[in-house]
Computed example of a mutant assay.
Amino acid sequence: MVDVATSIVIRRPRHAVAGYAMDPLNAPAWYRNISSVRRLEEGSFGVGARTAFEARFLGRDLSYTYEVKELVPGQLLVMATSQGPFPMRTSYRFEALDAASTRVHLRNAGQPSGFGKLLAPLMAPMMRRANTADLRALKHILEAG
């Protein structure tokens, strides 16, 4: 089992941070390893909505679909995928520190299989570094705008 939690404080109100980060179509702008994202259904984004991601991790191209498992607008988004070499549950939680600052909590947990199982001991530190860099990119985008 790999379980990685990271967080960062962004000097923007919670609604602005959550509104941007909870939209999966924005992921390629702040996730270094994600190259493309597309919604699989039209209509509102809510529990059960599916989104297809194309990414590169550990030198491999990955295609996977996340499904929204929990959604509390402005506060919590939990998505999970059961396919591929690394089934994953990703959660975003947004905590207002004051009217102008938000702490973003990002957690990835999953049970690697296939090639991922062989690399499991290295995955947690690599994921922590990648998540930290991605949260810094999110902070940069949101604080600049």
Score class of each variant (00 low, 15 high):
41 E>T: 15
2 V>G: 02
34 I>Y: 00
123 M>G: 06
30 W>L: 10
120 A>S: 06
69 K>I: 00
94 F>V: 07
40 L>D: 03
81 T>F: 11
100 A>L: 15
20 Y>I: 07
25 L>V: 13
129 R>F: 01
81 T>D: 03
62 L>E: 14
10 I>F: 09
39 R>G: 09
122 L>V: 05
132 T>P: 01
84 G>R: 03
12 R>S: 10
121 P>M: 10
130 A>K: 00
83 Q>C: 02
87 P>E: 06
103 R>M: 15
62 L>N: 08
53 F>W: 14
66 Y>T: 15
77 L>N: 04
112 P>H: 01
35 S>F: 07
55 A>T: 02
93 R>E: 13
32 R>Q: 09
53 F>K: 06
122 L>N: 03
29 A>E: 12
52 A>G: 04
81 T>K: 11
94 F>Q: 04
72 V>E: 14
46 G>F: 00
57 F>H: 10
145 G>I: 06
12 R>Q: 12
23 D>K: 12
56 R>G: 12
128 R>L: 11
82 S>W: 06
143 E>K: 10
66 Y>P: 08
12 R>G: 10
54 E>Y: 02
66 Y>N: 15
33 N>P: 03
102 T>R: 04
55 A>F: 03
111 Q>R: 10
131 N>C: 05
109 A>P: 00
97 L>H: 05
20 Y>L: 10
84 G>P: 03
106 L>H: 05
2 V>S: 03
9 V>D: 06
38 R>Q: 14
70 E>H: 14
99 A>M: 08
77 L>I: 15
124 A>K: 00
38 R>A: 11
37 V>Y: 08
57 F>L: 06
131 N>Q: 13
75 Q>G: 14
133 A>D: 15
85 P>D: 15
76 L>V: 14
83 Q>R: 09
52 A>L: 13
38 R>T: 02
118 L>V: 06
73 P>S: 07
4 V>P: 01
126 M>G: 01
68 V>L: 02
96 A>Y: 05
103 R>K: 14
34 I>R: 02
101 S>E: 07
31 Y>F: 08
67 E>N: 13
26 N>G: 08
108 N>D: 13
64 Y>G: 11
124 A>S: 12
